[in-house]
Nucleic acid binder design. Structure first.
Lengths: 134, 134
DNA sequence: TCAAACCCTTCCATTTATGTGAAGGTCAAG
DNA sequence: CTTGACCTTCACATAAATGGAAGGGTTTGA
């Protein structure tokens, strides 16, 4: 598929996909006319890039971990240098920390919202106490 | 405590803490001489700011959610406008998505590392198969 | 007491990372 | 032969953070 369609299917823009290629994150094949040519797997790959970026990982790191987690089977296990492995272990641990941190804070927000809900319903009376729960 | 000490205890710099104050993220009390005066709770607050920023949340959002999750008891429940509540609900959900995404990818990395480990040990022989497991 | 270390504000410039806009040209299909 | 999608390239935008200088007050400890 061409760049426009991939952009559409991933909710991004052609511009952004070209930018990712420039950054070495998402290098496309080329068809005869010079157009970028993406196959189906690129859809998921773009989503992963977006997600990792939104989770605060820098492109430098994404570039390293993406080839390892894009392959369904661990076919490409061989091309892992010791440095890459070290990076991966480090990032795995960083992600674990980040997850714990986010869970704690998400729960704090949720708790606050619950508290607000009870306060509100106390203020108003006794109506709709459990309404609109998650 | 003064700004230098807070910086030291949070692994940041005075410069950054002043910057956060400028951004409305971390407004300090002032003692008589004009020096910023931080109490113990600011340590955790700084860590929360750092963590949320590293997790990809913009300052605009952090500014809104921080007052709600900093209070141990939900004392300050009252000063929540409907818009704030909407933001909080939205961010709670976004964080949930982010958590799920991170867990999936962290697990993918972990699985890859495990695969590498088995491959390596197959290559070498039968030694140290289950060593250094998480 | 006095110097070093710390603090203050303000201003301005720069860096890094992520992303967007637009100009000028090519390709393909109706 | 026009329209729309694509190409490259250069410039610009935004957010977070850093650095430094000017110019001046405060604390601390030798």
């Amino acid at each position: 598929m061409r760049i426009g369609q991939l952009a559409q299917r991933t909710g991004t823009s052609p511009r952004l996909l070209r930018y990712y290629e420039e950054q070495g994150l998402l290098v496309a094949e080329r068809s005869g006319n010079g157009y970028r040519d993406y196959d189906e797997r690129y859809v998921e790959r773009v989503r992963q890039i977006r997600g990792l970026l939104e989770s605060g990982l820098p492109t430098r790191v994404i570039k390293q971990i993406l080839p390892c987690i894009s392959q369904p089977g661990a076919i490409y296990v061989s091309d892992a240098t010791p440095e890459t492995i070290a990076t991966l272990e480090q990032e795995r641990d960083r992600m674990t920390e980040r997850i714990q941190f986010l869970v704690r804070n998400r729960n704090a927000i949720a708790a606050y919202l619950d508290a607000v809900r009870s306060t509100r319903s106390e203020d108003i009376g006794s109506d709709s106490v459990g309404a609109a729960a998650e």
